[in-house]
Write a protein that binds this DNA or RNA. Structure first.
Lengths: 332, 332
DNA sequence: CTGAAAGCGCTTACAG
DNA sequence: CTGAAAGCGCTTACAG
């Protein structure tokens, strides 16, 4: 096994001191051009690369960001991470991706490891079970900025970057409204989730904004399968009427679409379908599903710029909401 | 910002030496029970956690594995990573996930960073553009085992863990055969990919194993859209016959399914569909698509045990092929 | 312009 | 059973 090149080795070969080599390599003004040239040449030759552990031990900084998500099998998080990585690369930070598996215990371990590694900052979508946010606040105390995204705590005074749940729901509701559809099934997620509450409330509100008569049936599904069953049981009452189904999330949309295929119904004639999505699932069907887009990519860009402001010293906590836009498929 | 607890701080408070604290903490037999008790107590109280940078600098070991994949938006990789993380956690290793974005340059950067970090080992699915595998072999020289999985280089003498392309293709072909279907459309991926070649060859071979008459049309699609277009243009010739479509991958399946929905055809009566998949996409349709399963999870378990054997000193390079199994949907 | 020295937080061979 | 010391590879204030 070949030894790694160190400053010492370069210094010895050039018969100069380690300090000089170190300075030459970082283009310190004190060092003569001639020395710099020699040092750079040799370090190229020997493929010198500084030992990050030594640097960190010395400087207490890692130039690393951590992104923590409950799950990776999620297009939304995937595009969020892409955005972070793009930005990070430009500033020669690296990005470590952690997966909490939606388990608060694992989340705590990850957090601890982030602290020990003295990462420069953390982007995190918390688990649905996370109750104690004390450890997150403590990291801020330790000088490690924490930016919450997507799944964020209730607690007020922290940095949060969220999808505009209300906005997305209102876009979807408006589209239904504009199509003159007055029979609507709304399938929402777990009652206890804050995004369910936000989306439901706004959806309802917009749909009833005029005093137009509306026949709205709202239900909750905790899984794709449940959404499928609910859709199957609800549709019969709507057959023959002009109606639409709103799916609050990709998971629900997947279940609903299975039911629709099972019943052999065609969009947009037999019924309309509209969702809120990051855009992968809706594109698997024909016609493609119309949806209000929640973009992980946008969210990532917003989160990153917030992070850089924190690193620059801003201690002001802020909640940023990303707006969504309607993406037309042919399903409604 | 609160300072981190160090060995020194504990030693001072207890008026003993740093060495003793260090030893007590790792339950060294030399140290008296009494001292151990005191040290452990105080370190609990002060929430002592060793500085990983210092340890690494000293011991040259990181207890960290790297997993490098071209993309995260891929259920297969996701389940591979899950398997690795499970195993790693048991041995208190941590796992860093890197994404090469299918760019060999980024892949090289990641590799370099793995080397500097002296990760304990690397699991990697290389990019489709990766030609130079020299740097990977060099890592082995540096004592960092590299296990290739899924997308592996041609080069013989390295550790590779692969999906059984031939086996999966033969399972799918056999199922078509067993159903007595003799008109078949086979949609394959990019001609240049080794998995395309392996799958195509075996599929063809099994389908023609008896001398039964077979009407097989094989085409290549580079994208989901292309698969959709091909399906649309090929189906008319098969309508009325008893026929099936084989989709080599999820990407192709997604395109083909869009075409089928567009034409309003029903499985399994109008046609049969069968694929090779990790199982997420097939479950989005009704009826669910029958597929030969390539399990990222299995692959991960296999890769991990291979890794541990490498770390234990095995230098013998090995190629391991994971078998697949048929998962019945109702599509054929 | 260059170098010697201290120190980041740990581990471990050596000495007692 | 415990401690002093060296050293992992770097950076940087200090001195010249």
């Amino acid at each position: 096994m070949r030894e790694n090149t160190t400053l010492k080795k370069i210094a010895e070969q050039l018969s100069i001191s380690i300090s000089t080599v170190s300075r030459a390599l970082k283009d310190h003004p004190d060092i003569s051009p001639e020395t710099k040239r020699k040092v750079n040449e040799l370090s190229e030759l020997l493929e010198y690369d500084p030992n990050p552990y030594a640097i960190n031990l010395r400087t207490h900084s890692s130039k690393e960001f951590a992104v923590v998500v409950p799950s990776l099998s999620n297009f939304f998080y995937h595009s969020f991470i892409s955005a972070i990585e793009e930005e990070a690369r430009d500033l020669s930070y690296s990005v470590i991706i952690y997966r909490s598996s939606n388990d608060p215990k694992i989340e705590q371990q990850i957090l601890k490891s982030c602290r020990h590694k003295r990462v420069s900052g953390i982007f995190i979508a918390i688990t649905s079970e996370t109750t104690d946010i004390e450890p997150f606040l403590k990291l801020d105390t330790h000088g490690i900025p924490v930016i919450f995204f997507d799944k964020v705590p209730q607690y007020e005074s922290c940095n949060k970057i969220c999808v505009g749940d209300e906005h997305a729901a209102s876009i979807a509701a408006n589209e239904i409204f504009k199509k003159g559809i007055s029979n609507v099934i709304g399938i929402f997620g777990d009652k206890n989730m804050s995004i369910t509450q936000a989306r439901l409330k706004k959806f309802n509100e917009v749909l009833f904004k005029d005093d137009k008569e509306m026949n709205l049936k709202m239900v909750h599904a905790k899984s794709s399968d449940e959404a499928e069953q609910l859709t199957l049981s609800l549709i019969p009452d709507f057959i023959g009427k002009k109606f639409a189904i709103f799916c609050m999330s990709d998971e629900i949309l997947a279940g609903t679409m299975k039911a629709i295929q099972r019943l052999g119904l065609k969009m947009p004639n037999d019924l309309g379908v509209i969702g809120i999505s990051d855009g992968m699932i809706p594109k698997l069907f024909y016609p493609e599903i119309t949806y209000a887009e929640t973009s992980g990519y946008n969210l990532g860009k917003l989160a990153f710029s917030r992070m850089m402001r924190c690193i620059a010293g801003s201690s002001f906590a802020q909640t940023i909401i990303d707006e969504s836009k309607l993406v037309q498929g042919g399903s409604i």
